[in-house]
């Protein structure tokens, strides 16, 4: 255990120092943790429970709008906001932080409520019907948001400008997302280690049998979706502020980008494992940034090809491949996991 603690510590220290060592890359590093959050929250449903959702962006977008609306309505009149949103220094550091904190908290609450309500219906669907239904949910949400004037409709919503007093914007959001990712990681680690983890794994392996065994599958499924939605909703609130401009279909409910990346990152790293989504997200984000720089104009072609290669040749993901390659490494871990479950893969 002590070695594990040391390694966690090493990763933690490296992550804490990264934005100080590479100050020019703070925003990209912040997005790295956003990607980790995307993959982790998707994997709760897709990996651990076998419910492949294409609609998790719904909670991302919901969180974005809730946070932005709270930030706006707390200190501004809706009409007036359209005229001052961009002015630096309109909000003091304290006001900004209050608005953001309250917004993020409400984003989490709203996402959980939405997941609880939607879950009762949608989680009754199985397999590909669930996948396509959630796809429809994400896209419909974007279109509907584009029709609501209160949240800017198709013109989108600008989040308040980050006040100078709080220092560097990239740094602030880096640590915000880092903290959120760490909290998510350890919450999931704790959840997977207990009865909850066993139950949702049972649902993945055979839902009917799990139900026959007396597991309240609907309850577990709904809770799992709520957990996923909670962290994703909060992340959404942060992403809205990091991007600075919320467009209903291209930023908030961006199913064709964020929505698909979530799935890919989890699969790339190895779905159904604790570390897999983290590793997948890191590799995916870095690859994508490299494509952007060096495959100018063809980067999306490369991305499409990458998706095909990943799902065709690495459907079990990196950790899955490693496990297949060196089973003995994982073999002796089984005992350890039985004693202290939750190591992850």
């Amino acid at each position: 255990m002590s070695r594990t603690a040391a390694l966690y510590g090493a990763v933690g220290v490296a992550a804490l120092l990264a934005p100080l060592v590479f100050p020019a890359f703070q925003t990209q590093l912040a997005f790295l943790w956003v990607m980790v959050l995307f993959a982790l929250t998707w994997d709760v449903m897709g990996g651990q429970m076998g419910y492949n959702s294409f609609g998790n962006v719904f909670y991302l977008g919901l969180g974005m709008y809730v946070t932005a609306v709270v930030q706006r309505d707390l200190y501004f009149d809706v009409e007036e906001y359209a005229h001052v949103a961009g002015a630096v220094g309109t909000l003091s550091a304290g006001e900004y932080l209050t608005g953001l904190a309250l917004g993020l908290a409400l984003a989490g609450v709203a996402a959980v409520l939405a997941a609880a309500v939607l879950g009762s219906g949608i989680l009754g669907l199985r397999g590909h019907y669930f996948a396509i239904c959630t796809l429809g949910l994400g896209i419909a949400a974007g279109e509907i948001a584009g029709g609501i004037d209160y949240i800017g409709a198709g013109s989108g919503l600008v989040t308040p400008v980050f006040p100078d007093a709080l220092g560097r914007r990239g740094m602030f959001f880096y640590y915000l997302f880092f903290a959120l990712a760490v909290a998510t990681f350890f919450t999931l680690r704790w959840l997977y280690a207990g009865r909850f983890g066993l139950a949702i794994n049972a649902i993945r392996d055979d839902e009917d049998k799990a139900e026959a065994m007396g597991i309240h599958t609907t309850r577990y499924k709904t809770v799992a979706w709520c957990v996923s939605a909670f962290f994703l909703g909060i992340a959404g609130g942060g992403v809205g502020n990091l991007v600075g401009f919320i467009d209903p279909t291209d930023v908030a409910f961006a199913g064709a980008t964020f929505g698909v990346w979530m799935v890919l990152m989890a699969i790339l790293g190895g779905k159904g494992t604790l570390w897999g989504p983290v590793i997948g997200a890191v590799i995916f984000h870095v690859t994508q940034e490299l494509f952007w720089t060096y495959l100018f104009g063809w980067q999306r072609v490369a991305l499409g090809a990458l998706i095909i290669v990943i799902v065709v040749f690495f459907p079990q993901g990196i950790l899955g491949w490693v496990r297949q390659r060196w089973p003995e490494r994982f073999g002796h871990r089984v005992d350890e996991e039985a004693r202290a479950p939750g190591g992850g893969a």
Partner: peptide
């Protein structure tokens, strides 16, 4: 396991290196 951690460390190293190259 040390292996998964090592893969994680490797990924972190790649991340920083890759972002610099980007």
């Amino acid at each position: 396991t040390s292996l998964t951690t090592r893969v994680g460390m490797l990924a972190a190293g790649l991340a920083v290196g890759g972002l610099l190259a980007a």
